[in-house]
Amino acid sequence: MTPELGIIEGFFGRPYSWEERASLVRALAPAGYGFYLYAPKADAHLRRRWREPYPDAELQALAAFAEACRQAGVRFGVGLSPYELFLGFDAEAKASLAAKLAQLDSLGLADLGVFFDDMKGDLPDLADRQVEIVHWIAERSTAARVIACPSYYTDDPVLDRVFGQRPANYLENLGAGLDPAIQIMWTGEEVCAREFSAGHLARVTEQMRRKPFLWDNYPVNDGPRMSRHLHLRAFTGRPSTIGPHIAAHGINTASQAVLSQIPALTLAESYRDGADYHCLAAFRRAAVAVLGPDLADGVERTLLLLEDAGLDGITPEQKARLHARFAAFDHPAAREILAWLDGAFVIGAEELQTQ
């Protein structure tokens, strides 16, 4: 069973251009990717400066992309992260939120994400506060579907270390309080889950009182450590048997929009082929489809350097050879590799704290 597949542009660092987004939608829609959630951390009008209205030019660009999604048969959605709104959901905050929702409604949203991720959350009544906010939004938004991302969206204790100890029974209270029609996102046992099991998802379903909407943090490569690597390999650890246990499967794509198509295509193949899925063969097919045979061969031959060694693990001589190899191709994916080699996608800790 193939669940609803989709793209989440939810990473830190340099966001995609509008043409990169449209090209990604057009490339993946035929493979079954049916939704796009626009939520780059760099869009401050959705996050730290969410109270400020979008300038006309940016709103028009969003509207044009929304139409491109609809023309491709893809649901368009936005992930709104009303930064620390739960610390003061007063009349002034509600007025600002209503104004932002009106702007977003003008885009013709199919989906609206309400994201509480990556912000302080160690409040005993956090779930109750967030339930109130999500219901308030759902009552006013014209979006057909509302999807909430919890502050603690994984079992991974790294969130407790960074954002404060999660309140007792947080996920259970959130699931009990939210209307069953509202989806809840989940990244798995880890922030960047190596695998998903039916048993784990069944447990989370019980806690949430609904099937989780997967926010899969692969092939995303943001952050000081991951941005120094390209994530190109085929999906593994997502057996087709998890399909009946999830509401949808969204992938947080890498900073490189064209290269992200390679692993994305393999996930669709994994669900389609089930027990007959072979990750290496799937990678090769996807790479040829996205890159053409010659560039695909060059990427496969250098995969150990691009994905495993990364910028810190390759020598200056290896970097020079990689640069020469990929400079020979007039292809947007080759240009992404060259930009990555030159450090254009490297993200520092400061960006994680300010976006």
Rank of each mutant, 00 (worst) to 15 (best):
D294V: 13
V220A: 09
T253F: 10
L338T: 02
S23H: 09
R272F: 05
V258F: 10
A138T: 01
L305I: 08
A324I: 09
L87T: 14
D308C: 15
I182T: 03
C69E: 03
A110S: 14
S227L: 04
A72S: 13
A68E: 14
C69R: 00
A176K: 15
D216G: 13
A61T: 05
R140I: 11
D160N: 12
D294S: 13
E132R: 10
M119K: 00
H45C: 04
S260Y: 00
I137N: 00
L85A: 09
M185C: 15
A257L: 06
G298H: 14
L46Q: 08
A333K: 09
A181D: 13
L28H: 04
S106T: 12
S141Y: 03
G88M: 10
V134R: 08
R48Q: 12
A91V: 03
H200R: 08
E206A: 15
M1A: 12
V162N: 12
S197P: 07
D125L: 05
A198H: 08
Y277E: 01
M185V: 13
A143M: 06
D276N: 14
R140E: 04
R145M: 05
P3Y: 00
L59Q: 06
M185K: 11
H231F: 09
E195S: 15
N252W: 03
A268D: 07
D111E: 06
L112Q: 08
I133Y: 00
A57H: 15
K319I: 01
L230V: 04
R225K: 14
D330M: 08
I137P: 01
W340C: 04
S141V: 08
E139C: 05
D122P: 00
L28C: 09
K319H: 08
A344T: 11
V288Q: 11
A148M: 11
G223P: 12
G6P: 02
G348D: 01
Y83M: 11
F329Y: 15
G6E: 03
P263F: 02
I147V: 13
